[in-house]
Amino acid sequence: MLSIKNLQVSLQDEDKQILKGLDLEIGAGEVHAIMGPNGSGKSTMSYVLSGKDGYKVTGGTATLDGVDLLDMEPEERAAAGLFLAFQYPVEIPGVGNMTFLRTAVNAQRKARGEEELSAGDFLKLVRSKAKSLKIDADMLKRPVNVGFSGGEKKRNEILQMAMLEPKMCILDETDSGLDVDAMKLVAEGVNALRSEGRSFLVITHYQRLLDHIKPDVVHIMANGRIIKSGGPELALEVENNGYADILAEVA
């Protein structure tokens, strides 16, 4: 599904390398987790994969089902099936959440040569998905993320994911700042989407989320590369001992 080989990334405007040879292979239907100290480059990786400006790829490749991601515009990557749940979802005053969702869903359908959803079908779909995430009608009407609490923003990310049905989902610290109930909602939203053809990359600091979303593989990222990979027990080790032991071990 997602294949990242020796990815090297620097800032566009500064001579600062952030990803220093990142390797990651995620098969179809798999759930991988990435943990790692702040500043190790986890968000940068997710931004670069989804096409944000401001970064320079100086080496390596990233493909989604064999298609070169790095060569595409952000909207093309989305249409190809990539989705990023933002660590910090953006507020967009003046654009209604519902309008935004419908525009995005239909733009992707159009890009894939599928028929656009009718207003009625769209409404039905969004209402049922919003309900399971406890997103009320008012949140759907309001401008995108404006005045949303931290938890509401994160649930709104999951709603977008549920509506867009991507095949590769990256969740960047979606659990940060959530209380236990909100985290459960998010985890249920993710689990409802799990399927053979859909893969997840879950960036998190906490074992808690991984209790609900059981990962197949856990990676530890530090200083711009994956330094250790293992099973779910690796996350427990981090939870109990922090990163220090692992960092020392590979150093």
Binding site: G51, K52, E73, P74, E75, I92, G94, F100, A107
Partner: peptide, 22 residues
């Protein structure tokens, strides 16, 4: 805002129009 919209699949020109109207 532009990146957020395009990352959801909204084409660049359409995203610009949405933000302009907003």
């Amino acid at each position: 805002a532009m990146f957020y919209l395009t990352s959801r699949g909204v084409p660049h020109a359409q995203a610009q129009d949405m933000l302009t109207l907003a």
